Computed example of a mutant assay.
Amino acid sequence: MPVVRRVRRIRRRRAAAVLRDRRRENRTHRQKTQRVTVKGFLAVLDMDAADIGRYSSWAGRHIAAAYRAAHHGYNTPCTTRTRTKPCSGHPKGRWIKVYAYRLTDPALIAGCATYKRTAPLLAAHFALAT
């Protein structure tokens, strides 16, 4: 009986070590990829700061829907936290969760193309790039 327990313990420790190493490799890979929030992407498209604050929420919904559609509804984008503007009751703003995407993610372009406020900016940006 003690031999069986010892073998099981060794197997569990090995499996935990393999999983820990795998997570460490994934963490370094994730840190190398550059991520951007919807506000950052809209700033790249040269949208006014007032319009970014006004339309980023709806643009984010369109982009998240495009991301889920591209992944057949099974995945959600990576989340990060950001601080909102100061308001009554929260003089420093509150922390909210927002989605962050890779710069090369096609959902950014697809989502902005479906939203009527960002579609002209996207068309103008890519017309200048070509």
Rank of each mutant, 00 (worst) to 15 (best):
D51W: 06
D21L: 08
R35S: 04
T82P: 00
K97A: 15
Y101I: 05
R81G: 00
N26Q: 12
A43N: 05
D105F: 01
A123Y: 01
A69C: 05
V98G: 02
G93P: 06
P2T: 12
R12C: 05
Y99I: 02
L108F: 09
R12D: 11
R68V: 04
V7F: 13
H72F: 06
G40N: 02
P86K: 13
A64F: 00
W95N: 10
N26V: 10
K97N: 15
A110T: 10
W95C: 07
T33G: 03
R20C: 05
R35Q: 14
S88H: 04
R12N: 13
L42M: 15
Q34G: 04
T104L: 07
R102P: 01
S56Q: 13
I96S: 13
S56Y: 01
V36H: 07
S56P: 00
R9L: 14
L121W: 11
L128D: 11
G89L: 02
V44H: 03
H29C: 06
R68P: 02
R81P: 00
T114S: 15
K85R: 14
K97W: 01
V18N: 10
K116P: 13
W58Y: 06
Q34C: 03
A113Q: 09
T114Y: 01
E25N: 04
R54Q: 07
P77E: 05
A59E: 05
A65C: 05
V7Q: 12
R54W: 01
D46I: 00
W95T: 14
S56R: 12
T114E: 11
H71V: 01
I96E: 07
A119F: 02
K97H: 08
C78Y: 08
G111E: 08
I52W: 15
A43G: 08
V38R: 03
G89N: 07
T82Q: 12
L45C: 07
V44P: 00
F41V: 01
Y99Q: 12
A50H: 07
R8S: 06
A66D: 09
A124M: 10
R27V: 03
A107G: 04
N75A: 09
A43D: 13
C112Y: 06
A50K: 12
T33Q: 14
V98A: 05
L121Y: 15
D105T: 01
Y99V: 03
Y101R: 05
R23P: 00
P106M: 10
R5P: 06
V18T: 13
A119H: 14
R9D: 11
Y55T: 06
F126E: 11
R54D: 02
K39V: 03
P2W: 11
V4H: 11
T28S: 15
I96W: 03
R94F: 08
A49Y: 08
R81N: 06
Q34T: 08
A123S: 09
T82H: 00
L19S: 12
I10K: 14
L108Y: 06
R27S: 08
A129Q: 13
R14T: 05
P91C: 04
R94C: 11
W58T: 05
V3C: 03
K92C: 04
P106K: 05
A123T: 11
A123P: 02
W58V: 01
L121P: 00
R54C: 00
R61Q: 14
